[in-house]
Design a binder for these strands. Structure first.
Lengths: 188, 188
DNA sequence: TTAAATCCATGACATTTGTCAAAAAATAGG
DNA sequence: CCTATTTTTTGACAAATGTCATGGATTTAA
């Protein structure tokens, strides 16, 4: 089960029971229908989100075309880093691709939690390490891999994205056009 | 001046004096000549480095060609994230492009410091936020920008790299060939 | 200071990926 | 179950970037 509690525990298994409970209490829950736009480009969105169910994408407009920056299925965190960590307006928009259930935590809540307990500060440091390593890997994939290899790696590492999410979003997420991805899939 | 103390202070200005002193004490210093290889691919390198003087690059081999993953001048941190944060062997090699002065902190030292004082854990959380935002920006540049735009942004944001570092490394860092970069510079 | 090594520019051509247009296929919702 | 809508495939062609080869300029190190 993709519970928030499980997720947090796996990040920092040694965390104390009371710290964990305290953190869990501060999140809000919400559910949204397919296609709902959670955040628009340029809005403030100082939240960390945990997707408990569903699918979501973050995107923005580049010369009036939509570019998908990130795709996530249930069991993952997502956020606008600028919004959450820097309190700046989000470059990104966020919208759901399936009916979804989301937990959200405001940056002020997080900062307060971090100040309140050393163990909680550690939890969020560990979350950042995860986030950094994933992001690093994404840089590498763009830097060193061809379109074909990027697709193959996604297929290996996250096949359910390919089954559940429309091709056009996946192509954009991988940094190529829909036509190119279609050709790659069909062996050209 | 690119002192480590200034750098740490700017990350977390409210840090207590004793915490700061404690952190500073744990770093080692070393100087290296040009071309010195600090870490080879596949070696363990559980260190965070601060470059106080000089220039450095991280790179690895892709089909027997060297690809530059990162370039840094004095005043910046650098590391193998896998080595430092995960204690895994480094995918990357690290070598100096100029005679350099480096501060280094072992991951065990960092973890001990974090455990010792809440304020220090916060410092390293803030360091991670910086690192994440920079990395995020790099993803975006690969995802959304053409070779030309990537070069122009580097020119704006870090012109001294272009003056001090050989074209071939810069090209590779920007994800293009040396010939392409040469043509971009010379207006084609 | 000079020879060797490295670095940079340029031409010809190949490859990858993008663009535009249209039709086929799949899906959603009444 | 059927139609409207969305998604995917395919073709023809264009643009961006890579590859290979070469020569000149610059830098390094003895």
């Amino acid at each position: 089960m993709h519970t928030l509690q499980n997720k947090l525990t796996s990040l920092y298994p040694e965390m104390s029971r009371p710290d964990l409970q305290l953190v869990l209490k501060k999140w809000d829950v919400a559910t949204y229908p397919r296609h709902h736009v959670l955040v628009r480009e340029g809005e403030y969105s100082p939240y960390l989100y945990y997707l408990a169910m569903g699918a979501v994408r973050t995107y923005y407009h580049k010369l009036d075309k939509e570019v998908t920056e990130w795709l996530a299925l249930e069991g993952t965190f997502f956020t606008s880093s600028l919004g959450f960590y820097r309190n700046l307006p989000s470059r990104l928009a966020i919208a759901f691709l399936e009916p979804s259930k989301v937990f959200l935590l405001h940056r002020d809540q997080m900062e307060a939690l971090c100040s309140h307990a050393h163990g909680i500060e550690r939890l969020f440091r560990k979350l950042l390490i995860e986030h950094l390593l994933v992001t690093q890997q994404r840089v590498d994939s763009f830097h060193f891999e061809t379109a074909q290899q990027r697709y193959e790696h996604l297929l290996e590492q996250n096949p359910s994205i390919i089954q559940r999410i429309p091709l056009s979003y996946i192509a954009s997420f991988l940094g190529m056009t829909q036509e190119t991805l279609s050709r790659i899939r069909n062996v050209r």
